[in-house]
């Protein structure tokens, strides 16, 4: 800031000198060459224009950057209100908009959390009552229905939390985390393998990332029969790939699977079911950790989910 003020001062003095020289030339006849005066004046004007333009556009670039950040993180810090009046107004309007969006989001997730939370007691009662049903077949069906309701309650709350709650981050051994998720899946009788050790350390919440990888691996097992998990370090990022041996997804499905409550048609059977929130929760968690998640069909067949996360200390 002070540098800029200094430059403007120097330019102002140069302007004054140029003006004085010009005036001297007019009143006292020759010998000064007008081309020199003009070029000094020209350079000064250009520099001043350039600096002014930069002063005005810098906050605008800040605004553009803030808009991009807001797309990723609703809780990003508000913009500093500085610069020319118009830019200040724009920054204030932007900050107000961010507050309103945040209020809207938390109202929506709060409502979802409240409804699912309040459903827990009646569903618990219902589940205990069902134990008294004598008809074995009916009881089994009722238990199945209640299990789906419990899944919806669980995923609804997980979703709300993935948007709203910032859990404390710690330094995590990514290999150990993937190993624990894969071991749990293996213990549940699933065909899951973990290849390659990355020695990656990432900043994150263990419980959130555990949920995130569990979702992806469970999907691979449910729709693709198996999960082949690998983890490598590429530059300042850890890249986790989860491959399955299923039919993959159509282009339309690839574009929609991250949408809340979107379910791949074939999955609406009772066996695989699902609430359609798993991948939405996964993406929210990954984005909170500064990462990305993408899906693609492999040429050899099967779906590949790629999650990348920044390594700790890489900033």
């Amino acid at each position: 800031m002070t540098v800029r003020v200094f430059v403007i001062l120097v330019l102002g003095i140069l302007f004054a000198i140029a003006g004085t020289l010009h005036a001297t030339a007019i009143f006292h006849g020759p010998p000064f060459r007008p081309t020199l005066q003009l070029s000094v004046l020209g350079i000064c004007t250009l520099s001043l224009a350039f600096i002014t333009a930069r002063m005005v556009t810098r906050p605008l670039r800040g605004l553009a950057g803030a808009a991009t950040r807001l797309g990723r993180d609703i809780d990003a810090a508000p913009l500093p209100v500085t610069g020319p009046t118009e830019v200040k107004d724009a920054s204030m309007a932007f900050n107000a908009m961010q507050r309103r969006i945040r209020a809207n989001v938390s109202e929506r997730t709060g409502m979802l959390a409240a409804i699912t939370h309040d459903l827990q007691t009646p569903v618990t009662r219902l589940r205990l009552r069902v134990e008294k049903v004598e008809d074995d077949d009916l009881r089994a069906r009722l238990i199945g229905d209640l299990a789906s309701m419990s899944d919806m309650i669980r995923d609804g709350l997980e979703w709300a939390r993935s948007i709203d709650v910032a859990e404390p981050f710690g330094r995590l051994d990514l290999d150990a985390l993937l190993d624990s998720v894969c071991s749990d899946a293996q213990d549940a009788g699933h065909d899951v393998v973990l290849r390659e050790e990355s020695a990656a350390i990432v900043l994150g919440s263990v419980s959130a990332l555990r949920r995130c990888f569990t979702n992806v691996i469970d999907n691979a097992v449910a729709y693709g029969g198996r999960a082949d998990v690998s983890c490598v370090v590429d530059g300042a990022r850890a890249i986790v790939r989860v491959r399955d041996s299923g039919p993959g997804l159509s282009d339309h499905q690839l574009g929609s699977v991250f949408d809340p409550f979107y379910r791949v048609e074939a999955s609406r059977s009772r066996a695989t079911g699902g609430t359609g929130l798993g991948l939405t929760i996964t993406r929210n968690i990954v984005v909170r950790h500064g990462g990305t998640v993408s899906l693609r069909n492999r040429a050899e067949g099967g779906l590949e989910v790629t999650l990348d996360l920044p390594l700790a200390g890489a900033e």
């Binding site: 330094r171 051994d173 150990a176 624990s180 998720v181 071991s183 350390i201 263990v206």
Partner: peptide
């Protein structure tokens, strides 16, 4: 929480059976 922490403060997750 299902994890242990080493001397350097790095969190090592455990599976249920571990």
């Amino acid at each position: 929480a299902r994890h242990i922490v080493n001397a350097a403060g790095v969190i090592v997750a455990l599976s249920g059976s571990e």
